[in-house]
Simulated assay, not measured.
Amino acid sequence: MAVALNEAELLALVDALADGAWHSGEDLAARSGITRAALAKRIDKLRDWQLALESRQGLGYRLAAPLERLDAAQLQAAAPGLRVAVQPVVDSTSSRLLEADPAQDPQALFAELQTAGRGRRGRQWISPFGANLYVSIAWSWPSWPRALTALSLAVGAECALALRELGLSGVRLKWPNDLLVDGRKLGGILIEHRGEAGGGCRVVIGIGVNLHMDAAQADGVTQPWIDLDSAMARLGRSAPGRNALAGALLRRLQQRLLAYPSTGFAAVAADWADLDASRDAAVRIHNGEQITDGIARGVDGDGALLVDTVAGRVAVHAGEVSLRLA
């Protein structure tokens, strides 16, 4: 019977290749104390993890680009009030936290690879190993905070502001939950909540940001996208490291979630307006078979999109609708 490959051994191989330089198969096998045949099996598994691996006769193996794995201790130090964990491979960080003990909240789970990452409206979130940032945060409040329907907008604003602090000046927000650069999707947010009216409220906030994804890894993405490397290169700058970005996001989100029951969306409404990619633009709203055209006029205090149509101004709530920019 075949022996399952050990995850720790696979991670050791990732770390050996993380510098992006060429490494001979002989050296890699000797470093792990295994045969070349056993090394080949591990290389195949890394390719299953969607790592961009190159091989060449006489040179060996290398990653197409250097890789920075997430450091749980460094991320924990960035947000001491959160329980922070990093898993190499999960189905979905949000699924894991939805099943986790709420008594451990607030907690954050990062993954290097998701096998079943998901976005809004049931879409798959492409999640190759180490290429992007995948994190979910579980947070519980003793009662439902006001403007809970606008929470995804507040989270989006904090994510965009964190990226701006790290030098990405061109980031914008597409209602209700997308991060954009030059009209292309850089990241997205998915919020799921549990609770009963009049009782406690628990939210799980899933965030994905494209960092270093190449075209092969993005096979299957059905909308225009961009990664942070490309976005920063357009500005003549280098992208921040994965741990630097993850730490910046945790710090801002922890502060926002702590304050949200008392401040609601109002505290970031001006930031959202400044980042709004659709304000005063022609938009088309898809709600099942119903289509509404109009001009976007920002959002209200509950996070609904205000659209001027031929029939007058309407407030569009997120739900299962889809916004298209003209």
Rank of each mutant, 00 (worst) to 15 (best):
P66T: 08
G81Y: 09
R47I: 13
G58R: 03
D101V: 01
A52Q: 09
Q76P: 04
G60K: 03
G60C: 04
A64H: 10
R96Q: 12
A52T: 10
L59I: 12
T93Y: 02
R83F: 12
R83I: 13
L70R: 00
G60V: 06
D71M: 08
Q76V: 07
A73V: 12
G81E: 08
V86G: 01
R56L: 13
S95E: 15
L63I: 09
A65M: 15
A78L: 03
Q57T: 14
L51V: 05
S92P: 06
P80Q: 05
L63R: 06
G60T: 07
L70G: 00
E68S: 10
V84D: 00
D48Y: 11
R83G: 11
S94K: 06
Q87I: 12
V84E: 01
A52E: 09
P88M: 02
L63K: 06
P102E: 11
A77D: 04
V89K: 00
G60D: 06
L53T: 01
Y61D: 05
P66M: 07
L59N: 11
S55F: 05
Q104V: 14
T93E: 04
L98N: 06
Q50K: 14
L59E: 15
A85D: 03
S94F: 07
S55D: 07
L59W: 12
L67C: 07
V84P: 00
V90S: 01
W49A: 05
L53Y: 02
R96V: 13
P80K: 04
L70E: 00
R47D: 11
P80T: 04
P66G: 08
L75H: 00
S95T: 15
E54R: 09
A100K: 04
D105V: 12
A65W: 14
G81H: 10
S94W: 04
G81L: 11
E54Q: 10
W49V: 05
L75T: 00
